[in-house]
């Protein structure tokens, strides 16, 4: 069974591997930080958030200060999908932002059906106040 985790990541519970949802590339063991299986680039934030005001005249220009802020971009090594961005301080180690208990995930999904696409939003569940601890179903 494959479990969707983020826009670009899923976990194959049988092989316990992270996979890219865009190209299917097997990234690496799901018990590890997914980021260690990506390629990384430290982006000058001014390339994304360009100065709107004349940088020769003004101290603050609508662009982040590159001495204070960098954007780490984590790419799928196969298809180059931008899996994650991390706004950080130059030199700060990338944070391990998502650490899942794979054994727990297996237990939970043993009772669920595999999804081919994210469930997304949809109508709010029908709340039945009479049933404590047994809210109505959410998305059909």
């Amino acid at each position: 069974m494959k479990v969707i985790v983020t826009e670009y990541l899923r976990i194959d519970l049988d092989t316990e591997q992270w996979e890219c949802r865009r190209c299917g590339h097997v990234l690496g063991p799901a018990r590890q930080n997914y980021k260690v299986h990506t390629r990384v680039y430290a982006r000058d934030p001014r390339e994304i958030h360009k100065p709107l005001l004349d940088a020769t005249r003004y101290e603050y220009t609508y662009a982040p200060d590159p001495a204070w802020c960098a954007i780490l971009e984590f790419y799928c090594p196969a298809c180059a999908a931008l899996i994650e961005t991390e706004y950080t301080v130059p030199g700060h180690p990338p944070i391990n932002d998502l650490e899942l208990d794979i054994d727990c995930l297996k237990r939970q999904w043993a009772e669920r059906e595999e999804l081919s696409a994210p469930a997304g939003g949809g109508l709010p569940p029908q709340v039945d106040h009479a049933c404590h601890g047994h809210a109505g179903s959410g998305r059909p």
């Binding site: 969707i4 899923r10 994210p118 469930a119």
Partner: peptide, 9 residues
């Protein structure tokens, strides 16, 4: 995000 049910978008 991967849950089969969300309560908001």
């Amino acid at each position: 995000f991967g849950l089969p049910r969300h309560y908001g978008n």
